[in-house]
Every structure is written in C-alpha cells, then in structure tokens.
Simulated assay, not measured.
Amino acid sequence: MRNGLYLLGLLFAPCVLLASGGGDYDIIERTINFVIFVALVYYFAANAIKDVFKARRDGIANSLAKIQEKLQDSKKAKQKALNQVEEAKKTAKDIVEAAHKESAIIVQKIEESTKNELENLVRQYNEHIAFEQKKAEKLVVDEILSEFLNKDSIALSKDVLIQSLLKKAA
C-alpha cells in the first residue's frame, strides 16, 4: 500500500512542477489520462496478474514440496543404507566368528590326525624293528644250521641241534 502511494506521488510530481508555469501545456490532462489508463489496466488485468503470481507461488510451493519429498526419500534411503551397513557388519562379524570356530575345529582335527599318524608311524616302526629282529634271528639260525650241517666231523642229533639253536637265538 505504501508503494502505491509513492507511485502516485511520483506520477503527480510533474503536474505540480509544471502547473506553475503559465504555458500551454496539457500535462494535467495527460497525467489524468495516464492514471485512468493505469487504473483500467489494473482493473482489467489485476486478476490475470494475480493469477500469474498465484500460479508462480503455487509452482514454487509444488517444487518445494517435491524437494521436501525427495529430501524425505533420501533420508529414508540413507537410513535404509545405514541399516544395511549395520546388518552387513553383523553378518561379517558372524562370518568371522564362524571362520574362527571352523579354524579351531580344523586345527583340532589336524592335531588329532597328526597324533594318530605319529602313533601309526611309531607302531609301524616297532613292527618293522620286530620284523628285522626276526629276520636277523632267521639269518643267524640259517648260518648256524649251515655251519653245523656242513661239518662232516660233527654228528649231532636233532635234539642237540634244536637245543643249541634255542640257546643261540635267546
């Protein structure tokens, strides 16, 4: 409203300035015609101008509402992403725990299998030593038998030979 008064004051300022000059100027009529013209334009175009500004205001409000919606959507998407990150962290933690448990189980199984393998190797070694002892005993017995049997001068009975062999083997 204040701006309108300033506008009218500016419109009538030339009238006041030129009114004192006694010349033949039609400034007053022209100013009145201009004011009437502006009033008619305002009367007929005011609704159209108001509609334009209202449409502009509504457009701005709509774009602001869309921006608010996008902002809310992005906040929801951010929250969803944060939730997914938390779930992924929990899943990763569970996977790491499971891997540690599995590695402990695998280590235990490897230790057990190594222990069993060592026991088998010791048992095989002992069996091999026993086998080699029997083999050595057999060779000694064969040597002694061939030594006694090859000598013509000594004639022994089977009982004596068996007794001597048993003494040698023991």
Rank of each mutant, 00 (worst) to 15 (best):
A170D: 08
I106M: 08
V140P: 00
A130T: 01
N116K: 15
Y43K: 14
V96A: 13
I129F: 03
Y125L: 11
Q133H: 04
L40A: 06
F131S: 13
C15S: 14
A92P: 00
K90G: 00
A169V: 14
K54Y: 10
E29F: 05
R56Q: 11
I28R: 14
I28N: 12
Q84M: 11
I27W: 05
L165R: 01
L161N: 00
V52H: 04
I129D: 01
K80V: 02
A81K: 05
V52A: 08
L156I: 09
A46Q: 13
S164K: 13
D58S: 10
E102D: 08
A130V: 01
Q84H: 06
A88H: 05
L64K: 14
V38T: 04
I95Y: 12
R56N: 09
F37Y: 11
I60T: 04
V52F: 08
Q72N: 12
G4C: 13
F34G: 04
Y42S: 12
D26N: 11
E112K: 09
D73K: 10
F148S: 01
E111R: 10
Q84L: 14
K158Y: 05
I60M: 06
V41C: 06
G23T: 12
A55D: 06
D26W: 03
N83P: 00
F53K: 02
L139A: 08
F12R: 02
I32P: 00
Q72D: 11
S153W: 08
D51F: 05
V96H: 04
L139P: 00
N126A: 07
K101A: 11
L139C: 01
Q68L: 12
K54E: 14
